[in-house]
């Protein structure tokens, strides 16, 4: 890939205590690239994701992002209003628990349409059509468009959350254990769908997961974290098939034996 990156992370640090949080993390992310951040719980990967998606200010370090308008911005140097604008127009955030990413009190159609309304869409018919088309794309029954997410299964809620995020055609999506807590068969279909959408839309993705199988299926490159620090990075196949760091070796072997 010889294009410019869209995200440059430089020496990012957010520590709650020694070894708790993330410390001195640097990497570049390229358009269309899926980067997996793996590690056990408590390794700092969620802290890192929150810092990257401008939901948690770091103690140190910078994150630069190349906007759709081809302008490099320092994310934590932006006004809160610009940050929110980026979050709902150029980014997506898929939470592990759908209720953190959905409005449970309003219909599926309204959930999908919210970002469009927030960015100025004022035509009900268009909103309706777009919501139906996205429900189709994420394999939800369009007859359920007026039902609330509370009546959906966990897998359907996660599909709805994905549609709600992708409706504004973001360039960069953050995912936090998007298949966590789902049945294995539901997980597999959701992963297939995610992989297909990521390719079709040429999305850059940062995905946090403790599940190396998920990482292998979706990510081209991996960052392995432990105690807040990056212990190993590289192409996914390399890292998983020939781990260099003792901790990565342990992670990989525990997957093989479990």
């Amino acid at each position: 890939m010889n294009r410019e990156p869209i995200l440059q992370v430089d020496n990012l640090t957010k520590l709650y205590a020694a070894g708790k949080g993330c410390e001195a993390v640097s990497f570049d992310l390229y358009p269309g690239e899926v980067l997996g951040i793996v590690g056990e719980s408590g390794s700092g990967k969620s802290t890192l994701l929150n810092c990257l998606s401008v939901r948690l200010a770091p103690d140190e370090g910078d994150i630069h992002y190349l906007t759709r308008a081809d302008e490099w911005v320092n994310l934590y140097g932006l006004s809160e209003s610009r940050q929110r604008h980026l979050q709902r127009t150029e980014w997506g955030i898929v939470h592990q628990h759908p209720r953190d990413g959905l409005r449970m009190g309003v219909s599926a159609g309204a959930n999908i349409g919210e970002r469009l309304m927030a960015t100025g869409e004022r035509h009900y018919g268009n909103l309706r059509q777009t919501a139906q088309s996205w429900m189709n794309d994420v394999e939800l029954d369009i007859a359920r468009i007026d039902d609330k997410p509370t009546t959906y299964s966990g897998g359907m809620q996660q599909r709805l959350q994905i549609a709600r995020n992708l409706v504004t055609h973001p360039r960069l999506v953050f995912m936090d254990e998007p298949t966590g807590g789902l049945d294995v068969s539901v997980q597999a279909r959701l992963l297939d769908l995610l992989r297909q959408l990521v390719t079709e839309m040429n999305l850059a993705v940062v995905i946090v997961t403790h599940d190396l199988a998920v990482a292998r299926l979706l990510a081209q490159r991996l960052i392995v974290m432990r105690h807040g620090r990056v212990v190993e990075t590289g192409l996914t196949d390399q890292v998983l098939d020939d781990p260099q760091h003792a901790y990565t070796q342990l992670l990989v072997s525990s997957v093989l034996t479990s």
Binding site: R84, R88, A110, G113, E114, A118, Y124, R128, I145
Partner: peptide, 29 residues
């Protein structure tokens, strides 16, 4: 749609009003 006073004040400050049309959308639906 937003029970938190801190958050609604922020939404006003940032003109973050997308949710207002949700209510009207739900009416029509």
């Amino acid at each position: 749609i937003e029970p938190s006073e801190v958050e609604t004040r922020k939404m006003h400050a940032l003109e973050d009003y997308g949710v207002m049309h949700i209510k009207l959308y739900e009416d029509i639906a």
